[in-house]
Design a protein around this nucleic acid. Sequence first.
DNA 1: CATTCGTGAAGACGAAT
DNA 2: ATTCGATTTCACGAATG
Length: 330
Amino acid sequence: MSNARPSTTEQYSDSSAAREQRDEQTEPVTHEVECPECGGAVAREADRGETVCEECGLVVEADRIDPGPEWRAFDQQAREERSRVGSPTTKTMHDEGLSSVIDWRNEDAHGNALDPRKRERMKRLRTWDERFRTKSHRERNLKQALGEIDRMSSALSLPDAVRETASVIYRRALEEDLLPGRSIEAVATASLYAAVRQTDTPRALEEVTGVSRVDPKRVKRAYRYVVRELGLAVDPTGAEAFLPRFASDLDVDGAVERRARELLAAAREQAVHSGKSPVGLAGAALYAAGRLVNQPVTQAEVSEVAGVSEVTVRNRYKELLDAADEPVPA
DNA sequence: CATTCGTGAAGACGAAT
DNA sequence: ATTCGATTTCACGAATG
């Protein structure tokens, strides 16, 4: 009782001290703003966090938007690289971890019990404080994740529909409390990959993890987890889905692609394709088709665009020709 | 010379226990 | 958590054009 440390009044002084410190670091000294009332110079009073006209004393509310970079460590993952994107919305802009913490004890600064009226009041405050905190936490989380999804999407030049889907998936993951234990970026990447799968916009997992900053293993785990917990319907990607893009990257014409499609169909008939990586299959089909149509591409090229080894291309394409009952061309 | 082809050891992964 | 089976990759050398 005697040491009622974290009382509300004390917290206030704490946070204002912290605010001063932050202002020293990041706040530019002066503002080139005119007072809308009298046209005089406007100065910022750092210690109070107010912007006040020196002439008439008008408090210029608009200038309370912090012009400087104000972020510190968001959470463990996001520390580097986040240059503040977009305009700050006042809603999410409240002070970073500097907000007052309301003590749970019903005592005042001296350790005396509060009277019932004040107790009631404190209780209400706690409730709202809690709501506000968790809400804003989620919003920051979401904002960062969506930014991440956006970044990766453009890096992969994915259509907007995929971003939409990815966003929806991420939101659901967030709703269902799937985040704890996983990094935001990992789940964001996983969501994007899931979206890619669902929308039949063929990108291999490797390509997606390639533009992510997260360890591929973690992404994969997050992906499995999210798919299972959310009950997402993702059917296995067929090799055919990769044909158009690879064909385009390889600069082969439609005849090759069509032939490749036939080869894959034949392979499917004979179930030669189970357990094999779709990308390898697609690449090999194009390689084989290229030879059949007398418009050959090298294994190295195929290996490059498909992101599999030449060995895999070799093995696959032999199997494909075999299944299609085609002779190996000279 | 470039490309293709085959091989065996090693790693990664999913499934089953 | 470990083990097992299948697949892929790597590195190499040989064959082919």
